[in-house]
Simulated scan of single mutants.
Amino acid sequence: MGALDGRVAVITGAGRGIGREHALLFAREGASVVVNDLGGANDGSGSDAGPAQEVVDEIRAAGGKAVANTANVAEWAGAAELVTQAVDEFGRLDVVVNNAGILRDAFIAGLEESQWDSVIAVHLKGHAAVLRHAAAYWKTASKAGEPVAGSVINTASASGTTLPNAGQANYGAAKAGIAALTLVAAEELERYGVRVNAIAPIARTRLTLATPGMGAIFAQEVEEGEFDAFSPANISPLVAYLATEKCPLTGKVFAVQGGAISELAGWHDVKVIETEAAWEIDDIAARLP
């Protein structure tokens, strides 16, 4: 018996890197998987059906169930197509793993509108679009009296939560938005039997290898037989657990890297100043650190 026996999952950005590891592990654990990947370059340009189909072929060769999808999840219609395909192919939808992403790094003073728009579209809108159509499916099922045990796992980043990275204003803003979206969605979808969590992973992928200042760290070779702390395969077991039917967790954001998993908390009070009258600028200046 696999941990995900009978579950149907859509995984975006599953043709390479972390998403590929998710798809392979989900299939090994008994899930039927819709492998979504537009097949574009790091910056989102171009498309290629090959990566998604290659993962599907690997899953099927191992005896698993999977189909490929190359829809653009940054478009509402593409996200709707993805959800519809899961239901049409496998009869239901239980899990959404939002993982697709691109990079178009630039410092703010030189950031082009297209660089901002494309990164926000793929990451933040891509999460929201798939979530929206999956939520509509689960709402309809719940209203019809069907049992729903849905799970959504979003992909945030340390860049948008704990470690802001210069040159990634677009990426960091999108990832911070994904963390906030996760908390809102967890509140909204609980009534339909759906849990929503997020991860902030650190692993070796084509995107992290291309990130200035980080490529050399992730590219370090590991001796055969040693634990590879930056392997993307380290991320997927947490995602698989969050996708299981009996997992009780919702509204959580977890940092995950190598052999470490930690729960993150958002903005919180660190110092409070108060007044019983109207604020004066000089008073604020004297009392704020």
Rank of each mutant, 00 (worst) to 15 (best):
A77E: 15
A134N: 01
A121G: 07
L131Q: 06
E54Q: 15
A156Q: 02
L181E: 00
F90K: 11
V67T: 05
T155R: 01
V96H: 03
G50N: 12
A135Y: 06
A176Y: 03
V148C: 12
A100M: 05
S159Y: 01
D105I: 13
I178H: 00
S114R: 13
A186M: 01
G91S: 10
F107H: 14
V87H: 03
A77R: 15
A134T: 04
V56Y: 02
L189A: 06
G63F: 06
P164N: 05
L189N: 01
L93K: 03
T140I: 10
E81Y: 10
A49M: 09
T162C: 06
Q53I: 09
V119R: 02
A185G: 09
V73F: 09
G78F: 06
H123F: 05
A149R: 13
Q85K: 13
E146F: 08
I178M: 06
A176D: 05
Q168M: 15
I153R: 01
I108D: 00
V152G: 03
A144D: 14
V152F: 10
P164G: 05
K139W: 07
N154H: 10
I108M: 11
E75M: 10
A79K: 10
L131K: 01
G91V: 11
G150E: 02
A176K: 04
L111P: 04
Y171A: 08
V122P: 06
A173E: 09
T161D: 11
A121D: 13
V184F: 05
D88I: 11
Y137F: 15
L93I: 14
R104E: 11
P51C: 06
L131P: 00
E187W: 07
A61P: 03
S142P: 09
D94T: 08
T84F: 02
E190W: 09
K175P: 04
E54Y: 08
Q115M: 14
A186L: 01
V96F: 12
E146K: 14
E146T: 12
V83R: 05
G110F: 09
A61D: 12
A180W: 07
N69W: 02
Q168D: 10
A134P: 00
R92N: 09
N72I: 06
Y171P: 02
A136H: 10
Y171D: 10
A135W: 01
V96L: 15
G160R: 05
L82F: 07
